[in-house]
Design a protein around this nucleic acid. Structure first.
Length: 423
RNA sequence: GGAGAGAUGGCAGAGUGGUCGAAUGCGGUAGUCUUGAAAACUAUUGUACUCACAAGGUACCGGGGGUUCGAAUCCCUCUCUCUCCGCCA
């Protein structure tokens, strides 16, 4: 969430910056300022009322001690009036605050200057690409390969749970385990501390990273306990630092976590959700960093380079795109998406999203730091990225490495799978 | 699931209606001493809003509500934690 300072500092400039998102935010911005001014006005008159009332209350104590009953009684009635006034003002203040909060929740993060204008993913800017697209004698989609080699059973998943909950079997299951171990080992080598977080979160955590209030429809809910299944490990891991004040030399904080992820994906349908392309439950290794504002873009580049190293090691053809304003997530200032080419479907699949949220999450999380010798706190920057999400990587591995002898396992994975061929 | 106890500042832990933003200890920071360090001593040390990040003011003692002129302290409610019993990987 943006702070009032960010909004009031230069509203017109802000509106211009936000317009990159392909939407006009001028009404919201002006409403925010208006509502905050109203809030301030009410607040200061409430504060003044309370001040008076506090003073009188103190004097009453004094008067009683001195035995001046009559004066005390008079002061009491005076205080009662002030109390009535304070009550009214408090109600007004709460209204204004709630109104302001609603408005602030609707204002997205400010896109970084490098974010290209545009409406859809077609307008995303390709940064670079790598790997070679394999020339296959036969293009077979992964759901057929999964069936042929008995790796993943989508029908069984339907039976046990429903669509989008596949059952991995035999070498299919081992491949999952291998990828998780590989990704975690790589993250460890790159200096990320391994975290194993809860898979269920409370409301406060959902607010902290921005899934709530408006995206609760995308999460599975445990209504009886007011909990949510995590859509990504980003939520519990980033929330480890909710309400934390760091010291400047605590940066950078680097964490990685493997978790299952649960997404309702309401509204998805058709061929995009075929096979592993879009699931309700999937596995992912996430990397999260908390960084000093001066260094967060350097860090973002490092994270992109790190994810790139993963797809390279897996020998997958890939491209990196910078998301355009229309495609950029609500909470993100700059996002790079990784896509790998899946030869059987003849299609690019998004496998990772690496973002800098700047202070947007930190403001909600109340994740701040203090400079040495300074009293003032300021929000830290948060970043995260998938490193990596498994299903589409599996899809591309199966499809791209399919040969007449079977499916070849990339060399880096073999020590984790203990086999080099699926046949 | 049953019974009981509790939730106070970074931590430990006082405080049961006014002088409490809150004793004390530990920790942190700065300084004195020292070649340096330790010890000792001295000072300082929560967050946010208002505001010029001054002074002053306001709020916050798990969350919400109430009683009262006045609440950390009394009442209601919710959440969480701990202990014992039960169940159980």
């Amino acid at each position: 969430m943006l702070t009032l300072n960010q909004i009031k500092n230069n509203p017109e400039e802000l509106i211009k910056k936000l317009s990159v998102r392909n939407k006009d935010f001028s009404q919201l911005i002006h409403d925010a300022i208006k509502t905050d001014n109203k809030r301030k006005e009410i607040q200061s008159s409430l504060d003044a009322t309370l001040e008076q009332s506090n003073k009188i209350a103190k004097s009453i104590g004094q008067l009683f001690k001195e035995g001046k009953q009559a004066e005390a009684g008079k002061a009491k009635s005076e205080a009662a009036e002030l109390k009535e006034k304070a009550k009214e003002l408090t109600a007004k203040l709460n209204d204004a605050k709630a109104e302001l909060q609603t408005i602030l929740f609707e204002i997205p993060n400010i896109p970084h200057p490098s974010v290209p204008a545009g409406k859809t993913d077609a307008d995303n800017a390709e940064i670079r690409a790598g790997g070679t697209i394999p020339k296959l004698s036969k293009k077979v989609p992964h759901w057929e390969l999964a069936d042929t080699y008995d790796l993943i059973d989508f029908e069984l998943g339907n039976k046990i749970t429903g669509a989008g909950f596949p059952v991995y079997k035999g070498k299919g299951a081992k491949l999952q385990r291998a990828l998780i171990a590989f990704f975690l080992d790589e993250a460890d080598k790159a200096g990320f501390t391994e975290i194993m977080p809860p898979l269920v979160i409370n409301e406060a955590s959902g607010f902290g990273t921005g899934q709530l209030p408006d995206k609760e429809g995308q999460m599975y809910q445990v209504t009886e306990d007011k909990l949510f299944l995590i859509p990504t490990a980003e939520v519990p891991v980033t929330n480890l630092y909710r309400d934390v004040i760091l010291k400047e030399d605590d940066f950078p904080i680097k964490m990685t976590a493997y978790s299952s992820c649960f997404r309702r994906e309401a509204g998805s349908y058709g061929k995009d959700v075929r096979g592993l392309n879009r699931l309700h439950q999937f596995d992912k290794v996430e990397i999260v960093q908390i960084q000093h504002p001066d260094k967060s873009y350097e860090t973002l580049d490092e994270m992109v380079a790190y994810v790139e190293s993963l797809v390279q090691k897996l020998e997958l053809p890939y491209r990196i795109v910078r998301l355009c304003g229309g495609d950029l997530g609500f909470t993100s200032a700059l996002t790079y998406d990784f896509e790998v080419y899946s030869a059987g479907q003849d299609k690019w699949l998004e496998v990772s999203s690496v973002s800098n949220f700047e202070t947007f999450q930190a403001n909600r999380l109340k994740l701040r730091f203090k400079k040495v010798g300074e009293k003032q706190t300021q929000p830290a920057h948060t970043l995260n990225g998938s490193a990596l999400a498994l299903p589409r990587i599996v899809a591309a591995l199966l499809e791209n490495n399919y040969t007449e002898e079977g499916i070849k396992i990339p060399e880096v994975l073999q020590k984790f799978t203990n086999f080099d061929l699926i046949n």
